[in-house]
Design a protein around this nucleic acid. Structure first.
Lengths: 248, 248
DNA sequence: TATACAGTAAATGTATACATTTCGCCGCGA
DNA sequence: TCGCGGCGAAATGTATACATTTACTGTATA
């Protein structure tokens, strides 16, 4: 608990509320009352209000009709669409990067990331089953997607992409961790990594359409994993952050 | 000036600031100071602050590094990208609509809009040059794009689309009005209307890929008009709302 | 001359009192 | 029983005093 730093109260309130929303402390649809929250957080109404405003900007809250805020709730369809949207936007970024061409240094850097991602697949030894370092993969994967998006050098595209990705279940690494079915998980990640390589190759060879569609297909893995999560444990797949937001 | 209604002060401040930003009273990059603005608008700091927060959410302001806000400024490239992004998102909406299929009633409604758009092209009589009702076209065009986006029945997609379109120069009707070159303008609008029809046809026939790419190409008309505006009058094409935001 | 530091003015951040609006509840009447 | 209307509690909206942070500027020292 190092959140009670000397940073300002708005940030504290923002952080605290975000945590509660993502982890299910404030389920989707919950109305947030300024007075109640400020008493609970021991922070006056002004920063709490400001925090809510920022979380609305972030997409976790929505403004209620007669003023005030409530926790945004997402149907399974909404989540599917958000992932699809990420695929479309990443695809656009990749296409633009391919069309415009990218700095050699950036290509070198992103290829280095590819190699590091490969390093997460430890040789399985005699068992034949690879042991995957999920935490490292998850982190590097997020970084890879970030760098990939930056290749298009478009602040406008990047901004919207960041916005979509800020929804926890739509982020590229949302479904990496804690999948119930280990075998399925290994297959997903191997396929995903193959797509990562193909994407970089397409951009390097300036194949815009190919890059775009690989990125879209890549996002479909997440979509598949989401649906698998719901099938395997429709009750509470709490492994995935932000799952609490999804109404069942 | 009916803006000094009895609505609350936050809305007044939001409206007033938005107007100033769009019409160039507050050029891109301008830092907004709460105290100065609240004195000028005769409104206390709290609603002014709230208004700035909302305009940041809208994309017209950005949060400055050390706190506070400044007017967002857009390069020509940013505007181009925003229009491209609109094309991509409208394309996605159209594709999803085609893939899922839409209610017959909605198709009927949007076809009625197509007919009304046709009505804006008055027969040119003996001159052979059509007289176009630009204002009516502009309004119907905006409505058409709105309805078209709604066909995909996806709140998530619609939300992001609304966000992009809220940038005045990225809206579908941004470049309809006040084009310097009348002949060019007529050609654009006729082409655009042909694309409108093709789009609806593609959706009706469930041709997702076709619908997507027509929508993208459709947005390219706006991009072309933007570039034409800059070539014809690089100084101050004040005809297009939001043009003041673009740094030259 | 450049840099670092301190002082100060002005900005944003915070708390809170007060104003206004909203919404639900209750009672009255048709 | 249903609907309308007003009353009241509780919510958000607003103003403002005060706190804190930031950033600039001027000066002193290396």
């Amino acid at each position: 608990m190092s959140e009670s730093k000397s940073v300002n109260l708005t940030k504290r309130a923002t952080y605290e509320l975000r945590q509660r929303i993502i982890h299910g402390g404030l389920p989707g649809g919950t109305r947030l009352y300024e007075v109640a929250l400020s008493e609970e957080l021991q922070i006056s109404r002004t920063p709490v209000r400001e925090a809510m405003s920022r979380l609305a900007e972030e997409g976790l809250l929505e403004r209620a009709p007669g003023g005030g805020f409530q926790v945004r709730s997402f149907s399974l369809r909404d989540v599917t669409d958000a992932i699809e949207l990420r695929g479309v936007l990443e695809g656009t970024a990749a296409r633009l990067a391919a069309e415009q061409g990218v700095e050699p240094a950036q290509l070198v850097a992103i290829k280095a990331l590819l190699d590091r991602l490969d390093g997460c697949f430890a040789p399985g030894g005699a068992t034949g089953r690879e042991q995957i370092d999920f935490d490292a993969y998850s982190e590097l994967n997020a970084l890879f997607h970030q760098r990939l998006s930056e290749l298009c050098a478009s602040p406008v595209i990047l901004r919207e992409l960041e916005r979509v990705v800020s929804l926890p279940f739509a982020s590229p690494s949302a479904f990496v961790l804690g999948q119930a079915d280990a075998a399925r998980s290994n297959r997903s990640l191997a396929l995903a990594q193959a797509q990562h390589r193909a994407l970089v190759q397409a951009i390097e060879q300036r194949e815009g359409a190919r890059a775009e569609f690989i990125a879209r297909e890549h996002a479909r893995i997440a979509r598949g994993n989401l649906e698998a999560s719901f099938v395997s444990d429709p009750q509470a797949p709490e492994c995935v952050p932000g799952m609490a937001l999804i109404i069942r």
